[in-house]
Design a protein around this nucleic acid. Structure first.
Lengths: 328, 328
DNA sequence: CTGAAAGCGCTTACAG
DNA sequence: CTGAAAGCGCTTACAG
């Protein structure tokens, strides 16, 4: 009852029935202007706010969206969180934020989302088991994987066209004259990292060019230490394609520490186009992920599935673009 | 009703009353082991999850904490978000994330929090009017301002001891031989920026040393452009005390662009100790904000006020410490 | 357009 | 320990 004021109190003060109060606040119903005014005045006076829980209980609908996120240390994700929150707010939805420390989203997190009967779920950089997907399906809760996908595509996902991007990147680097390149991967078994490697290797294979792959983890430290290892091996490649920007910054810093000139001695290209990539000290050439469009597609899907649950499956991939700066 | 399974269904299958099902799931009540097992088995079979809305409606309690945040572009805040979410999850609470684009938290955001009858509210880098504070008080919702405070201290706040920190910083810089210093402020009228200036100026005044203040806005770009302005004025100070790290990085980059050696020609010190401050390219000397302790104090307060609302007022300030790196 | 009433899924006195 | 019943604050047929 929030502040102890409920619809009955308002009704009494306004001299109408509780049903009328409800009609005024729920919208869609027909109420005479006179009644509306009386109710609104009384509500204002009393400071009435409808109880969302009672509302959800009776309508069996919720205005809560669960957003699951792991890598808050990669600026890409806070940005994503912000955009989702802003969009959903405009539509009258609130976001229940779930942070998971594990790669795979945990049972307790799922239960929480289920407890709250969320209207929809967005999972960003966490993986989830098929069983979890089933849990959501059973409850008819629309789910979208944002910036991730899975082999057995039995759900909806939204991302960048990683294949197109990485092919483009390979072509671009080739055209710049690079011949022996390195791919610094993100966390293993993430679809983004796998796809980015695939497109890249495709083009190189077509050109009969070998390349090396170094496994890293999508973090600054990962990029930094991977680059250190490469540098210490003594074989500096002509270019690094790094699976995301935050790692690429680590690579650049390692290179700088060893006074290896970029782009003269080697080139570096990242992925995401986080804010920091544009900082003058880095000036990182990268591939821009079209966050706004990705968010928009995700929101559209969720909203349409909330309106009518069809369990539509699919994979939307939006094309990004190359942002050429000073590291290539 | 989530998946359509409610306590009555479980009761039927288990052959007990609905009350018993409730007792098993709500805890605290006495149930025989035999009943408990039957209920648990039936619930498992049916995939029963208690409806949080019905629960909240009847208990008039919620396990939702509202977290209001603005500056997701400053890595300090995503870190804070993560820590709060983790702590609260352990205690069985979920976080309702509210992002505000405005300095002052908006009416609609407050209403949302009120709609959901949140058990507590944490406000980080947004300001709020007295009226809003009253709204929460009226509803007996504990509120804490995290990393902010206000003159008329009629609520609870948790932060770093900014005065102690900035005095220490001034002393430190003085000891390093700096005489003409500059303070780069954060967003105007934020308590953090004001206090950091106050402690700093106190010490300088005591030493009869003038200093200049440049107003900025707690963003990388702000720091960068402020430094540019200073550099172009031709008067390079012997040290910059920058009100937060993200701005300090901007200052460092501007300095580097103009080939002004740090710490040889000028020194730079930040505030927060965000991850990036430790990156080798920056190696920023800074003041560490004890996030974990600040979060812990905040959580403790909220939880104790949830258990018994006393509207206790106060201001907890935790001492941070100087992290000396290579920019001083 | 409006009111009285049923019912959403729970918790919790109240008896037994 | 257990069940029947009341009631949390709403929405929404159903009559009028």
């Amino acid at each position: 009852m929030s502040n102890g004021i409920n619809a009955r109190d308002v009704a009494k003060l306004a001299g109408v029935s509780q049903s009328s109060v409800s009609r005024v606040f729920f919208g869609g119903a027909s109420v005479s202007e006179k009644t509306r005014q009386k109710v609104l005045a009384a509500a204002e006076e009393l400071g009435y706010v409808p109880n969302e829980f009672a509302r959800s209980l009776i309508t069996n609908k919720t205005r809560l969206i669960g957003l699951v996120m792991k890598g808050v240390h990669n600026p890409f994700y806070p940005q994503v969180l912000k955009e989702f929150t802003t969009h959903f707010k405009e539509l009258g939805y609130s976001v229940l934020f779930v942070h998971t420390n594990h790669d795979e989203i945990q049972k307790e997190d799922i239960e929480m989302l289920l407890h709250y009967n969320v209207a929809g779920v967005i999972i960003t950089d966490a993986t989830l088991s098929l069983r979890v997907i089933e849990d959501f399906k059973k409850n008819k809760i629309p789910l979208v994987l944002f910036n991730r996908k899975v082999e057995e595509q039995n759900f909806f996902s939204v991302g960048t066209n990683n294949l197109e991007a990485s092919r483009h990147i390979a072509d671009y680097l080739l055209q710049k004259g690079c011949r022996d390149m390195v791919y610094v991967s993100g966390a293993r078994n993430t679809s983004t990292s796998i796809e980015r490697e695939r497109g890249f290797s495709e083009i190189l294979a077509k050109n009969k060019l070998p390349y090396k792959i170094y496994h890293s983890n999508y973090s600054y430290d990962g990029g930094y230490h991977t680059a250190k290892t490469i540098i210490q091996s003594g074989e500096i490649p002509s270019a690094f394609f790094v699976a995301n920007d935050i790692m690429a910054l680590g690579v650049l810093d390692a290179l700088r520490e060893h006074s290896i000139a970029v782009p003269a001695e080697t080139k570096v290209i990242g992925f995401d186009n986080i804010e920091m990539a544009a900082w003058p000290i880095y000036n990182l050439t990268t591939w821009e992920q079209p966050i706004s469009q990705m968010v928009q597609e995700t929101v559209d899907y969720i909203i349409s599935e909330i309106e009518e649950y069809t369990d539509r499956i699919g994979n939307i991939e939006i094309n990004g673009r190359l942002i050429e700066r000073k590291t290539t």
